[in-house]
Amino acid sequence: MPHLKDETHEQQSLLAKYTRDGIEPEMIGVTEGRLHHYRRLVFNVIRESLSSTYPLTVNLLTQKEWSVVCQEFFESHDCVHPQVWRMPEELIAYIAEHRQDLHERYPQLEDLLQLEWLEAEYYMMKDRNFPEGSSKDPIAAPWNLNPESEIASFAYPVHIKNARFISPTDKGNYYCLIFRQRTSGKVKFMNLSPFLAWLIATLKADESISPQELFPVIAKEFGVEDEALLTEQLGNFFDKLRSDEMVK
């Protein structure tokens, strides 16, 4: 049997709603001139958390656009995550659903938000351990890839170009490898060609396969038949990945 009376629940709801919409409610027994501190304190947490997660988006939008979107998001979206650092992820779906006008004004916005959230998420996320051992050969053996990694595909080059200078003519197919370095904990972004994105994705999907086993597919799908050149270039790529701690 619930203990809480409807009136008590209502008073709690009114205060909570006020912190979200800023419209001062008629409440029982509140001290005059004090409620607004709750609105200010709560909204500061929201705005600070969003702004620190999306600094590039803050820089892309006008101050007014950013203020309005933060305000509208908090007012009309029920934040579901108990961990405040995870809350900003919810902004991405909110903007996609409710602020299509922003996406039209800034076509790169969707990719930028995704990139910034991935950086925050990868920096904080739970550890995933590398499988045992090191890659035995860059061509003839499977690669021991960093499990704290993924490939994001973007329509705009938000990972290699200042979002403010991206124009509709930049639209294309971009691939970005995102991974967390084990020793420093830093999150790195690496621009990939479609071929290298496919290669990494294929090797990640089947950890028992070697690049060499993919040579026939590479020849057929990408038209690269010079195995000596392919071996050299993949060897160089492997070395770079290893120096960046993307492969062990």
Partner: peptide, 13 residues
């Protein structure tokens, strides 16, 4: 409150 986190501390009646 009402299925929305506020991330700050509000007083209980």
């Amino acid at each position: 409150c009402d299925n929305a986190h506020l991330y700050d501390l509000l007083p209980i009646p």
